[in-house]
Amino acid sequence: MTFPPLAFWIPYIYFAVILLVTWAVGRLAGVLLGRGIGQSMPQVSAAAGRLGTVVVWLIGGTFAIQELGVSADVLLLVVFILGVAGVVALREPLQNLGARYFSDIYTPFRLGDTVSVAGYSGKVIEINPITTVLLSEKDTLISVPNSLFVREVVTNTSPQAWREVNVPFSIGSSVNLARFESDLRKSLGKLRLRLDPRFPPVLVTRARSAQSTDLTVTVLIRQPEERDAVTAEVSKRVAELVAQSQLSRR
């Protein structure tokens, strides 16, 4: 049995090299995108990082496949058609999922608040990926699609609701949470003149997985007109610490 000549192996070597480079660029893009977007929106930093990595792999994978002599056009076409079909078929659930995702950032209510939207009112008792469940005064359940909370005017009638600033974010599961919280408290302590001094920051764990821990930090502001500025500053400080924590794990 004869060993194939070097020319036979060259496409495979290119294929492997491209995948290697794709892996490196994908990681770099993930970190840079996550950190860059996370500076302003820590809530979406992890998602932005993942999206960046996926895009790089899509491009790198296409180039790599072409090196093997396989036309990537058909593959891309199939992926595109499936994507469009999926978006069309799942438009409503995707809208709700997206709204749920962004409701963490933009919708000023949380569990336990009393809200009104599109003629429906009640206490928020559940926020799932598709709907938000309200408990009305008549003790009935109202299931409101999440997308409505982005499209319609939402009124939060909970007392002092304007004071509360909630910043959800994620950290890697290997990050030392005690150290992170200690650093976060020290950092937010610098803003205490803008915050209600009676309520120190509250850091709540929303969910845990093998990869990450989802948290929300809550502070109360003093002046309603500073809400936007305080939210931005708290988000920035959280993002900086998230980025630092990724670099210095436990």
Binding site: R179, E181, S182
Partner: peptide
């Protein structure tokens, strides 16, 4: 509750 020392109290509690 805003002092740096309280951050260490929180550190111990979180740990």
């Amino acid at each position: 509750f805003w002092s740096d020392d309280f951050s260490e109290y929180a550190y111990y509690n979180r740990l």
